[in-house]
Design a protein around this nucleic acid. Structure first.
Lengths: 224, 224
DNA sequence: TATTGCGCAATGCTTCTGCAATGTTGAAGG
DNA sequence: CCTTCAACATTGCAGAAGCATTGCGCAATA
């Protein structure tokens, strides 16, 4: 679990950091709004602990900012101010929870856990063809649910072909996809990979076929 | 917005119902645990407002019951009891928020809005695979009921893998889950932790196996 | 201070991968 | 219809890259 702790008071920050670490959370610490903005922009956190009183402004202003960037990370606001209208403001600006100082660490932890209890499996794009599916996000190939492990280069070939299932993929663009900027490959390495991939797909009975088209490139087809 | 209000005190219930209706929420009212269970089972609510003190038992017991049925509706617990350990219990049993009576209606409304904004949080507290179970809340690993203590980093590895049991976890996302941006790790530290974790899992005969996939990452599998 | 956790580097091992040698196919021209 | 040739297919191989494991020393923790 990755937490961004935004708190300017050094003692409290360090105490919290240590305490949270004890619960196996990975904590990054920002001491100002500016710093917090940078952290939040560049990294993916599972939750943000946010103090309102910061040297360079109200911590709350961070929330709409990151939400505007499409970041839905749960935010738990820590603050000394505790009257109702204050809480309402905080929650309405997009914070997910609000905790008044002083607080019991146990409660902080419990609220944090409640926030973190959310699906960890972000859905990623999956391409299907024949009996196989390719999870682009996790780089995983399944044939009828069974994993099929492929080496890197063959995976790249398969991906490039799957992205245009049933349509031609020019040899040159395959080369680009598989070898990228790597040094100029001067042999028939691509053909080699295609060949090996073909065999594995056949062995797994994936119900797809790679056809070569002379002088042009390859295409992947579903077969009955 | 459909709300299930579980509250036995008629006056409070009716006041809340009226007030919520003013904000265009559709409110169903249950006055007992039994009734609440029926309502929750048959209807789809966007949130549940739950009193703890009910004539036929502690309202909290409803939460694990509906969670077990795969129902992830956010639950906001209302209660007169307000000490910390009480809140912690409530949140750990799967409630999403906790509000002590007496409360300002404005705060209730704000917390409710915050809950409704949140993506549905399913995620059971305990993940199982093979003969081991991982309690995410208490960060405890059990093998056939026996505790297995693991160092921090290994625990993080295990957690990340367990959250996607049987499926690929990219090396990069493992790195992120385990190290965050703490420091630039430039060695094979991850491999080291995986190795050590493997050994401990094998020694404990946990009936799970960590497979490395060259060039991609790792995946955790149950074994017979 | 004793202990444990952790990152790191060295070592051995497995798998990948570019290459070349060899076989196969298909289109064009005679 | 056959020849011919270039493009594609397949396979074995050796070097490279990636992974697994272990021991070590420093640092954090108790």
């Amino acid at each position: 679990m990755r937490i961004l702790l935004v708190e300017d008071e050094p003692e409290l920050a360090s105490a919290l950091k240590t305490a949270l670490r004890r619960y196996d959370m990975v904590v990054d610490h920002a001491a100002s709004l500016l710093e917090a903005g940078d952290f939040a922009a560049s990294e993916n956190y599972d939750a943000i602990l946010l103090d309102r009183q910061l040297p360079d402004g109200d911590g709350l202003t961070l929330v709409p900012k990151i939400r505007a960037r499409g970041n839905a990370t749960p935010v738990l606001v820590l603050t000394a101010r505790s009257d109702t209208s204050d809480k309402v403001d905080g929650l309405d600006m997009g914070a997910d929870d609000y905790l008044a100082k002083p607080f019991a660490f146990e409660e902080l932890l419990a609220r944090l856990r409640a926030l973190l209890r959310r699906p960890a499996n972000v859905q990623t794009q999956i391409i299907r063809a024949g009996d196989l599916s390719f999870d682009l996000g996790h780089r995983e190939v399944l044939v009828r649910g069974e994993p099929l492990t492929l080496p890197r280069r063959e995976l790249l070939v398969l991906e490039a072909l799957l992205r245009r299932t049933g349509r031609m993929v020019q040899r040159s663009s395959l080369m680009e996809a598989v070898f990228g900027l790597d040094d100029e490959i001067q042999s028939n390495a691509l053909d080699t990979h295609v060949s090996r991939l073909r065999r594995k797909l056949a062995e797994a009975d994936a119900k797809v076929e790679i056809n070569g088209v002379r002088g042009v490139g390859y295409l992947l087809r579903e077969i009955s």
